[in-house]
Structures are given as C-alpha cells and as structure tokens.
Design a protein around this nucleic acid. Structure first.
Lengths: 197, 197, 197, 197
DNA sequence: TATGAATGAGGGTTCATTCAT
DNA sequence: AATGAATGAACCCTCATTCAT
C-alpha cells in the first residue's frame, strides 16, 4: 500500500559494491556474473534487471571510481588550515584507505589498462584526473594568494603531486615493506610546497 | 617431443613479440591464442609446442618486461657524463619509446593489476622495481661520492624519481595534450637532484 | 483467486488478439510473454492470471483459429443465391482478409508445423479442416439436389476446393505479384463446379 | 601425407541431414544445437566449425530445400513419355517421399512461417516456387506444341497444379485417412490436363 | 485484480587446449 | 616440427514462470 522505496536506489549500490569486490579479487575477465550476483545477495537474473551486461557493470564502476575521486577532492577545498596541513591530511586519508583494502588497487589498474587501449575508458579517467589536477592547482594558487609560501608554479606542482602519489602507490603495492608511504608523502609535500616550514 | 633448442631460440621471441602486440591491442582476457598464433605466423597448435598455455605466455612476457627494465638500467651505470645528464638522456629514451607505441602501456597496467591480486606476479615486478630503485640509488650515491651536487638522500631520491616517472607516464597516457612529458621530466630531475646547475 | 467471469470475458479476447499479433510478427518461439502482455496492456504477471502458460496461449489461439473457420462456414450454409455465387462471395471475403493482414498467415503456418509434429495440434486442425470439407461437400450436394449443375463428386470437389485455396494462398504469400488471387479463385470455382454458366 | 579429402564436403551434408531430422522432430526453436551435433556424430563445438550459428544452419537448410525442389524438376524436363504420364510419375515420386517421412513436412511449414514474416526467407522460397511453376508451365507448353491435348492456359494450369499439390499435401498431413493422395493426384491431373484420355 | 521484482533452468556460443596425421 | 580438426568446460545472457505486496 505504502509507496515502496525505490528498489533501484537500493540495489544498484549494493551491486556495485559486490562487483567491485569480486572484480578486485578475480579481475574483470575472470569475475563471473554469478559470483557478483551472489556477493550482492541476488540471483544472476536479478543482476540483469539492474545492469544490461558485464561491460555496463564495469562502466558503472568506472564512473563511480571517477566520482569518488571528485568527492574526495571536494573535501579539500572546503577544509580548514594551511595548504600543507590540508594536503597532509588528505594524503593520510588516502593512505588509510589504501592500507585498508589494497586489493582494490587492482580495479584501478584494470581501468588504466582499459584506458590505455580504449578511448572511451580513457575519457572518463582523463576528466577525473584533469579535475584532480585542477583542484590541487587551485588549492595551491589560493594558498599563494593568501600569502602562504608555496612554490614555483601551481600547475606543475599539482601535476607533480598527482604523479608522485600515483607512483608511490604503485611502488608501495609492489613492495609495501620497502616503501614508507607516509614518510614519502610527507617528504613529497615538503619538497613540492617549499619545505615543512 | 619438444622442438630443438635452435628452433626454440627462433620461435620464442617471435611468439613473445606477437603476444605482446595482441595483448596490447586487446588485453589479456580478450586476446585469443588463435590471434597470437596468427600474428606469429604459426598455427594454434604450433604455439603450444613452445608455450604450455596462455598463462605461461603472460608469465614469459612479464619476465621479459622485467628483464627489459634491467637492460635499460645497465646502460645507465656504464654511461658517460654527469648524473643529471645521464638521467636526462635515459628519460628521453624512455619517452621516445612511450611515444612510439603508447598502447604497450596497457600491458604494463595489466601486469600491475595482476600484481595487485596475485603474489606470484607481484614478486616479479617487486624484484624489477626494487632493482630499478637500487640502480638509481647507486647511481646517485656514486655521483655524490664523485663530488657532484646531488641531494639529501639517494634512496629517497631514487624512490621519488621512479614514482614520478611512473605517475607522469600515467597522466600522459590519460591526457597526452595536457602533460608535457619532456618538460616534466626535466623539472623533476632538476628538483630532485638539486637544480639544473 | 482467479478473475471473475466478467473480467475474464473482457481480458481473454484482448489477450488473444494481442498474442496473435505478436506471434504473427515474431513467431511463436521469438514472441515473449512480456511483449504479449504489453500489447494487451497488461503486466506479465497479470497475463498469467488468465492463461497458465505460453503453450496454453498458443492452444487457445489454435482453438480460435479453428473456430473462426467454422464461423466463416456457417455463413455459407445460410446464404442466398446459387452455389457458385455463394462460394465466390465467400472466397472474396477470405481474400479481403488475407490482403488486409497477410502476416497472420505466419500463425497459420506455425500451426501447420506444429500439427506436422504433434498429434495434439494435428487433431484440432484435423477437425477444423474436416468440418470445412464436409461443409463444402454438403453445400455442393444440396445444390446438386436443387438441380444446379455441379460436377462429378461433391466430396472430391470439396477436397479439391479446399486444397486449391490453401495452395493458392501459399503461392500468393510467396509472390503476391505473380498470383492473381481473385482470378485464380474464379477460374478454380468455374473449373470445379462445371463452368461459369 | 596424402592430401586428406576435404573435410567440409563430408561434414556439411552430414550436419545438414542431422539438422533436418532434429528440426523436423522438435521444430526450429526447440531444437538444441547439442542435439543436432549429437545426431551428426559431432561435438557441439565442432558444429560451429562448419556453421557460424543456428540461423545459418536454418538458412542452409532452406537453400537445400529450394535446391532439392529444382533437382526434382530437372528430372521432369528430360523425361520420356507423354505429359500426363510424366506428371503422374513425378507426383508418385513425391508421394512416396512424403509417406516415407511425413515429419519433414514440419520443416517446410516452418519455412513458410518464416517466409510469411521475413522478406529474406520469402525470397528464397519465391524463387524456388517461381521456378517450379515455370518448369511446369514450360512442360505443358511443350506438350501442347507437340500436339498433345493439354488445356486452356499453361500458366494457369501450372499454378493450379502447384497449388493443388501443396493443398492436398496439407490436407493429407492433417488427416491421412481422409485424403487419398494418389487418387486425388490422378484426378487433379486429369481435370487440369483435359482428361485421362 | 494487478504488478514490480525475482529466479531457475537452460541455450547458444566461445575458446583454451588436445589429438591424429 | 607442424597443423587442421575436434572437444570439454564454461559463461553470458534470456525468459517463462512465480512471489510478495
């Protein structure tokens, strides 16, 4: 009688989460729709009520991946404190996430592989990372305008920051024992923003 | 049963090259053994005379990928000129390769994805990147010992160098127009090695 | 549980009409219960309130197909005019129907295919066509009894009439431009009933 | 060593025969590729070496169906004896085939159903039946030219012949006991060709 | 009476791998 | 050493049918 809540709004995130987990564990190709359905507590056929196919599931996950990056960045703009402190806190949050579930990195690298060979996937990530860099650039420029000591060029600094974080993440994934993610992040920020001062 | 050594020495590289090309274009999962055999100018069944299965092909490619990194590094040690110049030349060589066939990046990201979820693949890359960092570290340390101006700590510098190059490569792949690979490499080297001086 | 009679009386023909249309367009196998429900303005689940399954829908349609043939024939008995005229008018009516929606022929041929391999379906059509022939036979016999010139044997004439009409319909369906349905019907009737006289 | 015989030439007819049998028994839709493969003594995957899909199998069967009709007709032209005798013998041959495996009629009706809703299938059958009629027409015309008594118009006679045979076949399939196929064929030929003379 | 949501069962197709030659 | 032919094992996806409301 009472208007049932929109099932889609409930199921879609539930499915995406399950898909992300299964994809992370087995890779896009080896992941079975059946496993994803099971992980989402649904039958295979029910899965298809919400996603027309496996590719669409991957595409949706890519969108979410991109959107999540945005969400993370939004927090940076509105934050308090000096530039260095804010970026430090942001890096720490990312590191905590990474450490919590490093296997999700696999999904990211599959996206990169996809992007390296399909313009479609590339576009999504291009926008996300473009936005990412712009956000950092603006952040740095604002700090400079406020009189903070920052560095030579916001744009290059932003690019270097993003690149360094991505690269460090990779090295850490390959050899967690050999890369001090926190220390490296600290030093990176210091070096790129003109010292801990 | 199995082909004599001399025939193997001829076929194996031929096959690996074909495999790399097909894997780059279609991804590990979508690549068909048939396509690879065809690209290598062989029948599917002949392919199996040289590789016991698809996974072994991928593993062999991973080994080659790792070995190639080593080879590249060897050149660094024996080179001439100052540290900065040598690293600059090395970066340039890598950039030229990238620009020549960016699609091969896809293979690299697939390896990373594999590594992120399988200890086996991770090991190979761990060794390669470990070696990579050590090589750079030694290079920097040597330069310092020779009295060149270098920077704070060879180890951290090496890590940062590798990370930055990997990260910049990613950003460039996603948006070649927005990333000045050469300029960024120059600036990176300057910043990390204590200026162009 | 099941709908009251008055609701059934409303829904069943509505559904059958929709089913016939969908079956004609897509064939029995390709037709989806969903499509039929949609064409009938119902939900899929509602469809199942009136028909227990797809086969039953087909069976009901077969019955209707058969019944329609009877209805058509009833008109023949009660009609006015001489035999030749009555049969001519009847043929004309059938031709008009055919021309209006030739695609419904597909349903008929699917019934024939069904009949050719299932005794069940065969029975229904056997009765229908048997009745059909008898009706024509009686008609001819009556005319003969009334003194009309008819022909050698009512039974064979009836059989030939039915066969010819079915065969001409097939040829016309395959190549409407090459078969003059009306002319052929006229000539057929003349030939079988002993001339236009 | 010796050139192995072309496997295709061996397998394709073998598969088509199996497919025809399975399609006849179960209908196009219910027939399983697995069953067809089994009936042909092959694995399902092997089937796909020779036919890209189920539809192609059906299409090939349709072609064969059409080609067979041609082959049957060729015999008519080259035959000996008067027109009436030749057609009688031809009808007899067809009747023998029908009686031997009436279930194959189902395949024919499925083709008709297909033709009634798809221009593609219609074309094939149109050509076949067009050719069929022309062949008969030419036969009749030739006989007339030789001075045999034939009838009013070869073209209409041919059309009527084909239609009658198709129609009679249908009626016989529905009720073998009620239709004397041989007698009807005889009478039909007599009636259409101007008597048994 | 009606439906949106769910599912079990199954089919077509693909492909890594093997075999006979 | 090489291959054309063959196949077992899956997997994606569909759909008739049912259930909860």
């Amino acid at each position: 009688m009472s208007p049932r809540p929109d099932r889609r709004a409930e199921r879609v995130p539930q499915i995406l989460q399950a898909a992300r987990a299964v994809f992370a564990r087995r890779g896009f190709a080896e992941a079975r729709m059946e496993d994803i359905a099971g992980a989402a507590g649904l039958s295979k056929a029910a899965l298809y009520l919400y996603f027309p196919g496996k590719d669409d599931l991957i595409a949706a996950l890519l969108e979410q991946y991109v959107a999540d990056a945005f969400a993370d960045l939004a927090a940076l703009r509105g934050g308090e404190g000096g530039l260095r402190a804010r970026l430090g806190a942001w890096a720490e949050r990312r590191i905590v996430e990474l450490e919590a579930e490093p296997v999700y990195l696999a999904v990211g690298y599959e996206f990169f592989a996809l992007a390296a060979r399909q313009e479609g996937a590339r576009q999504g990530l291009r926008r996300a990372y473009g936005r990412y860099r712009e956000e950092l650039e603006a952040l740095i420029a604002e700090a400079a305008a406020r009189g903070e000591r920052t560095g030579p060029g916001p744009r290059d600094q932003a690019t270097a920051l993003v690149a360094l974080f991505e690269g460090l993440t990779l090295l850490w994934m390959l050899d967690p024992g050999a890369v001090d993610l926190r220390g490296a992040a600290e030093r990176t920020l210091d070096a790129l923003l003109g010292g801990p001062a």
